[in-house]
Amino acid sequence: MGSLKLGILSPGGIAALSARDLRTTGRKLPAFAARTLVVLVYLFILSPLVFVIWLSFFKDAIFTFPPSGYTASWYMNAWRNASFANGFVFSLQLAVLAALIGVSVGVAAALGISRRRTRGAALINLLLLAPLVVPGIVAGIAIYLFYLRAEDLLNIDLVGTFGGLLLAHVCLTIPWTMRLVSAALGGLDTSVEEAARNLGASAWQTFWRVTLPMLRPAIVASALFSFIISFENLELALPLVGPGHTTLPIAILEYLEFNLDPTIAAVSSVQIVLLGIVMLITDRFVKLSQVL
């Protein structure tokens, strides 16, 4: 024991011990720095949401910092405003229908492009993914002009109708389904489908009982993101809405023309909480990390 102590206390032992401590500290320091960086990034991302929710409880009608007090009256003010309630219901209906139709079309398109190597598949894929790179206001104006030309040729009303707005939102939701489902199809084990076919299952039975369950996380994630994109969209809907067909984002924009108080923050806070609950419930049953 004495010789061991002397060996550690000798200059060579102290040098070896110091080198080992430095190596251990060197391994811990990058891990600590990485965790700190992740925390800072999360704070940076979540800070606007936290600030909006905090702002919705300010007592002052004109934004001042620090606030003179806190109140929940702005939530009651938003509840009493009929345009917000009507816009919320209309946006909810529009987003649900757009997500259902867009996911159905997107899944069929992803399967057709990924599994059927037909001529022109790359061009069709590029066309269906185009809304992701086209600015929303540009797409809205283009669809508006297209609707005007279609009304002249077909003698039907599209601008300002629910059907015309729904069609535009479906075009907005298809690319999200295309990207997620195509990525999921690329990672599927096709031998499982081949085994089902070899055991006597038809093409429809294989799709319904084998392929579709394996694609469930991607389909649910597609439906979730399609719903959120449609529900929160402003630029595309702005030139297409008509009387009685006002979405919640447009109702918020109209309120801001004549008012500047925390009512808008209260409405936004309700949206943040509701969408957060939807994402948590979805992640509870289908892990979004499997697809994203």
Rank of each mutant, 00 (worst) to 15 (best):
R117M: 11
G102C: 03
A98G: 00
A121D: 14
G136N: 01
V134M: 09
L132Q: 10
A121W: 07
R117L: 10
P135R: 00
L127Y: 05
R116D: 06
V133P: 12
P131A: 09
L123Q: 09
V105A: 13
I137K: 13
R116I: 15
G136F: 09
A121C: 08
L111K: 11
G102Y: 00
S104W: 14
A99L: 03
S104M: 06
S114E: 14
I137E: 08
A98Q: 05
V133Q: 15
L97C: 12
R119T: 13
G140D: 04
L97G: 14
R117N: 05
V134D: 06
I101Y: 08
A130Q: 08
L129K: 08
T118Q: 11
A98C: 01
A121L: 05
V105I: 01
G106V: 06
A98M: 00
P131M: 08
A130N: 14
G120F: 15
A121R: 14
I137M: 15
A121H: 10
A108P: 01
A108F: 04
P131T: 12
I137V: 15
G102P: 00
I141C: 06
L127E: 06
V103W: 12
A98H: 04
R117I: 12
G136K: 11
L100I: 06
G112E: 01
S104D: 05
V138H: 11
I141L: 04
A139F: 09
L97Q: 15
G102W: 07
G106I: 04
V103T: 14
P131D: 06
P131W: 06
T118R: 03
R117Q: 15
V138N: 06
R119P: 05
L132V: 12
L97N: 11
I124H: 02
L128H: 03
V105P: 00
R119K: 15
V134I: 15
I124V: 10
N125S: 12
A122G: 13
S114V: 10
T118M: 14
G102F: 11
